[in-house]
Design a protein around this nucleic acid. Structure first.
Lengths: 236, 236
DNA sequence: TGACCCAACATGTATTTACAAGTTGAACTT
DNA sequence: AAGTTCAACTTGTAAATACATGTTGGGTCA
């Protein structure tokens, strides 16, 4: 990929891939930190930086005196962490359908998070879609992007593509963190229609605020999740 | 407290306290890493280790070239992170009531997480309680502790005390991480009674598995949360 | 006055070195 | 043979250093 990627990130991606691909299985011991140093030609702090990311993403656990043990891959939907929804279940089981053509408009008022003046002035692009796992609708989400330097965005197509991937590839915008609010709600008519649920069924509602690598540029999502068949999973 | 606490943890606790106490306010710039080095007589890697914990706990954000900016204190209930529920709202607004005397018994079957043989053999101590914020019931939780080397546990009293604090002070057990599953459910008769909700209202259900500093010793919680008035908050 | 440049300072990445502390298993002692 | 000790290996903590990269504001030059 990018040859300018920091070494610890390359090591992180490499080890993560080997875990996801099953080369390292649940319960396996990773090579020791010193072995990884030799294998990848880096020093121990660099290795530890990569391993600590794997820990916080839930891929391994470290035990002093023993080593780094591969954690079981999460069974549920890992939406609570930054990695997004595709990491756990595998992108191949996911399909998404846009509900309407993305369009520029005003922010809803009131909005779920406070907006600064620049964001308010610019207005926002709004994208709503339904995401399916194994052909069952699990997510209905509405995404709000400030209309700042994202020309030709509305004309792009998002079917079965990751919004974050498009932002990263086409605009160099990376998600670096965020905050979220959770609550349980009852499905109304629209929700029960979109998620193929009865009315008055329990739905998990997430409101998320993403920070990006572009200073001052934030992305917002309101996500409704059917948790009847599939839990939402996270580590801490 | 403990004079053997690692330096980076002392610095973390010190800065965290200053943020919670309002000495550093939202939007303030923390002293730069080099200034903190001088102030606390440690080196930059140590300072950075402390700051990175503050970042992952959502207290600050770092900006290359600018500094570390104090984040707003979360408004909702910060149960998604390890810090627990008391950090955001302040312990003074929280009361808890035990529902029955803790007692030793068998694990429920099926159980929300897989148990190993030692845990199954030992049986478990079960504690259920309701937690109130501003005299309104928000949480109903059931906690399961393996009955291994926790003598005289059932006779202690937990009213208005943190379970984790008791474990730490009396048994030297610290929570070091864990995993959780989330879903939205409808309140049944018991839940609506405990949480003062109507039946068929939406409730957030968390199932949590805590790892502790005692090897092989895990704690489990099933938490039902009324999110009608108060969101659950998290960062990522 | 306005645009540009750049020095000063912030955090990010990386190396090297050292010692502390937990775990394991083999060798030794009884 | 069983229990103990200890050496070797693991991760944890910490220091000192160097350079890269992003931000800011003041000074310079047109």
């Amino acid at each position: 990929m990018d040859p300018q990627l920091p070494q610890y990130k390359k090591l992180y991606e490499d080890l993560r891939k080997q875990i996801v691909d099953g080369i390292f299985k649940e319960g396996d011991l990773l090579p020791s930190e010193n072995e990884l140093c030799s294998l990848y030609g880096v020093t121990r702090p660099t290795v530890r930086q990569a391993l600590s990311s794997l820990v916080s993403d839930g891929f391994i656990k470290k035990h002093q005196g023993k080593g780094s043990i591969v954690h079981k891959l999460p069974k549920g939907i890992g939406i609570l962490s930054i990695a997004g929804t595709t990491s756990a279940l595998g992108a191949k089981n996911i399909k998404s359908k846009m509900l309407e053509k993305p369009s520029v408009g005003q922010w809803p008022d009131p909005f779920m998070f406070p907006l600064n003046d620049a964001e308010k002035r610019a207005g926002c692009v709004q994208l709503s879609r339904i995401r399916y796992f194994n052909d069952r609708p699990i997510f209905y989400d509405i995404n709000y992007l400030p209309n700042i330097n994202i020309n030709r965005f509305t004309s792009r197509t998002f079917e079965n593509k990751s919004l974050f991937d498009i932002l990263r590839v086409n605009y160099g915008i990376e998600i670096i963190g965020g905050e979220q609010k959770l609550r349980a709600i009852l499905s109304d008519k629209k929700l029960s229609d979109y998620l193929r649920l009865g009315e008055g069924m329990p739905v998990l509602h997430l409101e998320r605020h993403f920070d990006t690598s572009r200073p001052g540029y934030s992305i917002y999502s309101s996500i409704y999740c059917n948790t009847m068949d599939q839990d939402v999973y996270g580590i801490f």
